[in-house]
Amino acid sequence: MNHYSDKELLEQFSNGNADYAFNLIVRKYQQKIYTHVRRLVADHDDADDLTQTTFIKAWKALGNFRADAQLYTWLYRIATNECYTFLKNKRKRYFIPIHDVEAELADKLEHEPSLKANELELKLQKAILSLPEKQRVVFNLRYYDEMKYEDMSEVLGTSVGALKASYHHAAQKIEKFLQSF
């Protein structure tokens, strides 16, 4: 794990050390980005592809990155948009309505050999998948990534008030889902 700040990494990137600096950026954020993506798409291969695409897109656009923005919220933003596009294409490809992709993901969870969850944790994952897509992203960013609402606002382009309300609704729905079993 490197100890450079984002500012230092960006300075190195623009001062002719682009390859080295970008490698450090990938090492610094790969785990967070992969985990965020994996929670949304469930499958490792899909998450792997989407994580790689996120960093490749970041590499192409990093030259135009605004110094006043935060690198990590920007990476999360790219990754989240990639996931939205992926899920949208998946729906189009199979001509299935919105909730069916989530049903497919829930089914995948149940048969996922790499999932190390007890019964309650598995229910929690299913409850999260029962949320509407954008609410699910809000819940994951707050609950798992422990992201500040202000940072989430940068990632999702939504007001802090709307994000708080969305998280509140999501938590209540999940609680009900968990209690119903």
């Binding site: 992969y34 985990t35 994996r38 490792h44 996922e112 050999p113 790499s114 999932l115 190390k116 969850a117 944790e121 994952q125 609950y143 798992y144």
Partner: peptide, 8 residues
């Protein structure tokens, strides 16, 4: 809260 997925 814990990481539930195995990663290669």
């Amino acid at each position: 809260k814990k990481h539930l997925f195995d990663i290669p």
